[in-house]
Amino acid sequence: MSPLLLADLTVFTLALLVGFEVISKVPATLHTPLMSGANAIHGVVIVGVMLLAASVSGIGGDVLLAVAAFCAAMNVAGGYVVTDRMLAMFRSRS
């Protein structure tokens, strides 16, 4: 394994552990917004799609890039907006 891969693996493992620690404290009341909010966070894949733009070539590559950008942008934009809509409904008194 290269040092770079080892460093990445370390970061991934620690992120998993931080995730377990933080998310196990979320109450059942908020599990749907939690899942939807986590869904929005994996919309960070759009950053990956943008970085991919530097390494594709040809029409095939551009089409693949456009499809990937479509998917990732839908994930990130929709995810955050729908989570916000849900959380706006949680009020302490009616």
């Binding site: 992120a15 998993l16 931080v18 995730g19 998310i23 986590a38 966070i41």
Partner: peptide, 10 residues
């Protein structure tokens, strides 16, 4: 990697 790990845990 970090975001993926967090969501994986969730």
């Amino acid at each position: 990697i970090i975001a993926g790990g967090l969501v994986g845990a969730a």
